[in-house]
């Protein structure tokens, strides 16, 4: 059965939403979203520590979406366009926020991503710190300009508080859903 993105997006939008988006992702959009998030968190008088944590997680998560979302082939683009992504940032309760995103990735890349997340997910803070330093110092940049540190950084800042699903959606693509919990 095809995963119903519309219904899922409706579901994740329930609650105290701070920012959301469903559509194409661009560099300009990331700049705009980050500014909205920052201003709204200040308006809401959230404490500096959690504000910074959310901002840092959003920077990495949105730039990951921008760099790693796979385009759908033109004939299956329907109403979603190229580099289609969805994300929501909302407050769950006092000092607890969630960031939930969904994007297409090629089925051929699922195993790599799944292995990478699973590798990170069960590491302790000390192990994450070691891995972070190892990747930081490896002098490698991907062809997309990333350093391979985004997920490790998110895990380090959030205490590994994330879950994910890959949903069958199109012939060659899966819809990848990621939920990150951010606490003080």
């Amino acid at each position: 059965m095809t995963f119903d993105i519309e219904a899922w997006y409706g579901e994740i939008n329930k609650g105290d939403v701070i920012v959301n988006h469903k559509g194409v992702i661009t560099n300009d959009l990331i700049t705009e979203i980050l500014s909205i998030v920052e201003n709204k968190l200040i308006e809401r008088k959230e404490n500096t520590r959690i504000r910074k944590k959310i901002y840092n997680v959003m920077v990495e998560a949105l730039q990951n979406l921008f760099h790693h979302t796979d385009k759908l082939p033109n004939e299956t683009n329907d109403n979603f366009g190229e580099k289609f992504v969805t994300f929501v940032l909302k407050k769950e309760k006092e000092d607890k926020f969630s960031y939930i995103s969904g994007n297409y990735i090629l089925k051929s890349r699922v195993k790599f991503l799944k292995d990478r997340i699973d590798q990170i997910k069960y590491l302790t803070h000390e192990e994450l710190q070691l891995l972070y330093k190892l990747i930081l110092n490896n002098n490698e940049f991907s062809d997309k300009g990333g350093g391979g540190l985004g997920l490790v950084d998110i895990a380090k800042r959030t205490g590994n508080n994330f879950e994910y699903f890959f949903h069958e959606n199109k012939k060659d693509h899966c819809f990848f859903c990621l939920k990150i919990l951010i606490t003080n």
Binding site: N56, V59, E60, Q63, N139, F141, G146, G147, L149
Partner: peptide, 12 residues
């Protein structure tokens, strides 16, 4: 105030 992971390698 903030830096992303891509910058962290360049800062190194």
């Amino acid at each position: 105030e903030y830096f992303n992971t891509s910058s962290s390698k360049c800062i190194l």
